[in-house]
Design a binder for these strands. Structure first.
Lengths: 218, 218
DNA sequence: CGCTTTTGTGAAGCATAATTCACAAAAGTG
DNA sequence: CACTTTTGTGAATTATGCTTCACAAAAGCG
């Protein structure tokens, strides 16, 4: 997985160290290097969630580094740092793939705000394959649980032992295990009379299952 | 799981034993009992795939037993056996939940044909939660594999190390593991230049994923 | 009430999936 | 060619999910 690190790339040692200090004080894990070439090397060993890149550097400049980073590590967010800020420069940086743009000199809080926002965006992009998806799909990946959903859908409402017998499963605790699983994932619920039934979530899931099976068999 | 057993319920000892013999000769595992009450008890201990039930029995008759069986063990197929066969009787039996109807006297082969057909239907109903579904959903239940699918869909075609870097995963063998998995399930393929891309199956899957996530978030 | 069935819990064992590691062939590059 | 990166394999380990088992409270029933 991508690490929690932030990479700082700046040839100006004073500025670099002060950025690192601010970020580390705030609790971030930080790596720093002085050249674009070193940055590329560092990225290969440890892909950061965010890179702060200075525009003007001896050797490969920040503007040249940007597309390389974006190509090989598209998940990493990039904040461009520049001394002689102009509109054109800012626009060019953003067009080259920078996710934000910070003009020197900047205050501690300006830096932190930009970093936090970038990390938030990164997190969001990372989760695009949504987290609740994990549970849902794990739930559906078991045949017994799918059977429970379908029979519940067919019968509307069933008691524990009815389900077990319908599925023809000997060990009732086995069924119980899966019922608990489904209950924890809010796909089924249980009323005062102990009867199980699908929740609205569960019905949606079942719908999806049917959709899936149609699509797969195409 | 439901057992391979066939249950024979008939008060006429001669007929019962001859049925049992025919079925066992053919290789089926058979349980027999003489009354409806005994049958209900036997079902609780061992849910058969199929029950052969005589219509006329002292105590609870076959017609009374049918709805009870269907209620508690809907997965079990039922073949009604009757001596004084009429159309009305046959219709009534089928309406009460019998899956087939056999008039006495019947030949050995008539019995076997009916039994085979019933077992086939039972098997089919059992598999309704399709088998290929298992693999597909297991495949999708892993977050990394889903990420691979989505990034491949976004990029169209990617090489191995590009994928690993994009996902920000350190250990390339880990990605390889999941790529292999996806490849085995025919969701992605690899061309001569070693580039990975989605197969049509894979695209369908991804479609389904999007569908799912929309539904879930509703 | 005593007895059975239903519904349930939690721990132990087993099976499968996922990760890591050590290593290597193939491809690309100077 | 030597050297690096890419792409890959298989075994060992770890994590996770599933099943089984021993047991028990609650509900139903004579």
């Amino acid at each position: 997985m991508i690490t929690e690190t932030i990479l700082v790339v700046d040839d100006d040692q004073d500025l670099r160290e002060s950025i690192v200090e601010i970020l580390e004080d705030y609790g971030y894990k930080v790596t720093a290097c002085a050249t674009a070439e070193a940055a590329l090397q560092a990225m290969k060993e440890d892909v950061p969630r965010l890179a702060l890149v200075d525009n003007m550097m001896p050797g490969m400049g920040g503007m040249a580094l940007l597309p390389l980073l974006k190509k090989d590590f598209p998940a990493t967010k990039i904040i461009m740092i520049t001394a002689f800020s102009t509109v054109d420069n800012a626009v060019a940086a953003m067009r080259s793939g920078a996710d934000d743009y910070l003009a020197k000199p900047f205050k501690r809080d300006e830096l932190l705000v930009a970093v936090r926002r970038a990390l938030e965006e990164q997190k969001f992009a990372q989760q695009q394959t949504e987290p609740c998806m994990d549970e849902a799909l794990a739930c559906l990946s078991n045949q017994i649980r799918r059977q429970i959903l379908t029979t519940l859908s067919a019968q509307g409402e069933m008691r524990f032992m009815d389900i077990t017998r319908t599925l023809g499963i000997r060990d009732h605790t086995k069924v119980n295990f899966h019922l608990k699983n489904l209950k924890n994932n809010n796909l089924i619920s249980q009323n005062r009379q102990k009867s199980y039934r699908l929740t609205s979530q569960g019905e949606k899931m079942l719908d999806c299952l049917h959709l899936l099976s149609k699509r797969i068999s195409l």
